[in-house]
């Protein structure tokens, strides 16, 4: 099948690639860019395991074609930790609050939570639950995911770690 050239930014780096028009963004990220942290859990855009940050919005990358990412700025889970390896407060929060078990939904959860906290830096529990409703988890029962996001929100806001843990 004829390929189309695309140029975009992924995790701060310029990327140029040739893709088939029907290639899904998630397959492009995983298979062409080897960014396998973004996962696939369903075929119907329900589970959110493939969530990435796309031009300042949360996007399920199984629902977009790679060609639609022309010119886009994308951030994936691989782009969350600092260059020096410092974990993002969300990554820290998920570990501190036991917000993951099998880890399969985690990258999508963190990427969605990242955008949620941009939109609403101090969400209430209900706002977190509603804001995360597009991401399914089969292991944790969400309670600790909520706490993980609260931890990150508090840490980003500069609260003491004591408060963050509460």
């Amino acid at each position: 099948m004829a390929k189309t050239a695309i140029a975009l930014t992924v995790n701060g780096e310029a990327v140029e690639a040739l893709v088939e028009p029907r290639t899904l963004l998630v397959h492009f990220l995983r298979e062409q860019l080897n960014l396998t942290g973004t996962h696939i859990g369903c075929d119907t855009t329900h589970c959110g395991a493939c969530t990435v940050d796309f031009d300042g919005r949360s996007v399920k990358s199984c629902t977009l074609f790679a060609v639609q990412a022309e010119g886009a700025e994308i951030r994936t889970i691989e782009g969350m930790a600092g260059a020096d390896g410092t974990l993002h407060p969300l990554q820290e929060g998920f570990r501190e609050m036991h917000g993951l078990q099998c880890g399969f939904c985690t990258p999508g959860m963190i990427m969605r939570a990242y955008r949620l906290l941009q939109e609403n830096p101090r969400p209430t529990e209900d706002e977190i639950r509603t804001g995360m409703a597009g991401n399914l988890c089969r292991c944790t029962g969400y309670q600790n995911i909520v706490r993980a996001i609260q931890f990150a929100a508090a840490k980003i806001a500069g609260d003491s770690l004591q408060e963050a843990a509460e």
Partner: peptide, 21 residues
């Protein structure tokens, strides 16, 4: 004890079957 597994999973560095190439 905090989980050892989380270090890789929170960074997208788990290795699941479909990640294998």
């Amino acid at each position: 004890r905090k989980r050892v597994e989380d270090i890789r999973f929170t960074q997208g560095k788990g290795s699941y079957v479909d990640d294998l190439k």
